[in-house]
């Protein structure tokens, strides 16, 4: 049986490719892209206000609400603003760390640092947000640490959301920048130094321009992850972000939730197009 099947594929590359791709492409195109298409279609449905039943027609009501209600406009603005702030914060924090890892640390130090940055990237998202919730609470570590200086922490609110999101996505920014810096040949840096450039000039004129696409690559993650997160705002603030509104509408107004879910998609597509222009795709 196995032999006969293998014989069938033997010398028929087209058939081999189809056999290999049928499963994964079927799953991702029919299953996943199909679901995204359903999401797009559902955004044009409405909910009958009397019966609460779904009306599967073509209506722009959800989008009108989204554009005309100042509440939703503010929520979208707030979410995009936080995403931008988080991205800038992470880029500033990540660069020196990535630079040290790529160009200063010894081989051994590098290996240890990569693991130290990697492990938290992959695990315990919820636990980390929860940890910040306890730290930011009135009797938490932050107030305890700042009290001797007569200061107090930011408490819960949009500042907390900015802080926690910057924390959560920092490793996503460090790793692409690290990889980008690793690719810059040391000889280029030496050449700049030999030609008399100060370390600052070398940094500004040689390293930064070459590493910039990697920063943009990292920013894709920090931006996208912030746009969709609703757990962090829920745990460390009372403010509403796009994710919260989607979450709150999912059970009783699915069409409106779907329309809202298109917002991060549209913002991300625009962002990705700019990122592509800046050459970030080679660094993802």
């Amino acid at each position: 049986m196995g032999h006969r099947l293998a014989g069938l594929f033997h010398g028929r590359p087209r058939l081999q490719i189809s056999g290999l791709l049928a499963g994964p492409v079927g799953w991702l195109v029919i299953g996943y892209l199909g679901s995204l298409a359903v999401l797009l279609i559902a955004a044009f449905w409405t909910v009958d206000p009397l019966s609460g039943e779904l009306v599967q027609g073509l209506s722009f009501e959800n989008f009108e609400t989204l554009f005309n209600e100042p509440v939703y406009r503010d929520i979208v603005k707030r979410t995009v603003l936080i995403a931008a702030l988080v991205t800038v914060t992470d880029a500033v924090l990540a660069f020196p760390i990535a630079f040290y890892m790529a160009k200063v640390a010894s081989r051994r130090g590098k290996a240890i640092l990569v693991v130290a940055v990697l492990l938290p990237l992959w695990s315990s998202y919820l636990v980390k947000v929860y940890a910040w919730r306890t730290m930011l609470s009135a009797g938490g570590v932050i107030n305890w640490a700042l009290e001797p200086f007569g200061l107090s922490g930011p408490g819960f609110g949009s500042t907390a959301v900015w802080l926690v999101m910057s924390y959560l996505w920092l490793p996503y920014m460090i790793l692409p920048i690290y990889a980008g810096l690793e690719r810059i040949p040391n000889s280029l840096i030496s050449a700049s130094e030999d030609l008399g450039a100060s370390p600052f000039t070398t940094f500004r004129r040689v390293i930064l321009p070459l590493a910039f696409p990697a920063v943009v690559a990292g920013s894709i993650f920090t931006f996208a992850l912030t746009l969709g997160d609703y757990i962090t705002p829920r745990l460390v603030s009372n403010d509403q972000f796009i994710g919260n509104v989607i979450f709150n509408n999912i059970s009783n107004n699915l069409p409106f939730a779907s329309a809202l879910a298109l917002v991060p998609i549209v913002v991300m597509i625009a962002y990705l197009m700019v990122a592509r222009k800046l050459g970030a795709f080679e660094h993802i």
């Binding site: 996943y32 679901s35 969709g228 994710g243 939730a257």
Partner: peptide
């Protein structure tokens, strides 16, 4: 690459 909430809702 898309936010988890999009995948989840879809």
């Amino acid at each position: 690459a898309l936010p988890g909430i999009v995948t989840g809702v879809a």
